[in-house]
Amino acid sequence: MSAPLPAALVPGRGGLAVRAGVTAYVVLLVAIPLAALAHRGLADGLTVFWAAATSPEALDAFALTLWTAGVVAFLNAIFGTATAWVLVRYRFRGRRLLSAVIDLPFAIPTLVTGLMLVLLFGPQEVLGQWLSAQGISILYSPPAIVLALLFITVPFVVRAVEPVLLELDPAEEEAAHTLGASDLSIFGNVILPAIAPAIALGTLQCFARAIAEFGSIVVVSGNIPSRTLTAPVLIFGEVEGGYPGSAAAVSLLLLSLALALSLGVRGLRSLRSKR
């Protein structure tokens, strides 16, 4: 991506103006608001920031956000890889449809996702009633958060692993076969090392997306402080409650995490494009 630019394509005055415009747009629309967020978080001093960001309520919210995102990332790492495998290696009727279904979460608004889960597990619905008769409650508890996040993050691992699987050289597997390796050992020794960076990339994206989620969770979790209140929902509550300072403090912590994850994703990507 950073090969030197041919002299003939070096931008002239018009190109430089476009560059200035693009930079200004990004700075105005993204950089300044985020800087303001960080500034507000720290404006009342570090001690206030720290107190707000690590209040028992905030800590519980962070813990819930992180563990649900972790569970979701883990599940998607496994099932997402399996899905990519099935899509690339199997030929069956409905494969195109399956592939399209996986992109569904990119299109469906997350609030609608949350509503769907309410419809599925709500106390008046068939499944919800049956489950509560079994003593299982999903809605307004962490499992609902996990289900909502799973819905939203399905595509990441699949779409990260799929192209790498497609590019795998079948000769390597065939060579391993002729050397008498079992299917399992071929997967472990030949395929897994090749797709591991892609799995890591997808899992990281999945995790990053999960800790930022708001729309679906706010409807399904019931937002019970210290039990089902995630960090983004907590921020929302603080804004609504008229505490922008503590909202900004929690935001700043979450923003740092998002930034770190985003840089991690970039790192993994450039690793992949170098190979």
Partner: peptide
């Protein structure tokens, strides 16, 4: 990287910002 960040952060934070 800043362009990427617009995807990475929670929409609630966008509103607040």
């Amino acid at each position: 990287a800043i362009v990427d960040l617009s995807l990475a952060i929670s929409p609630v934070m966008t509103g607040l910002a």
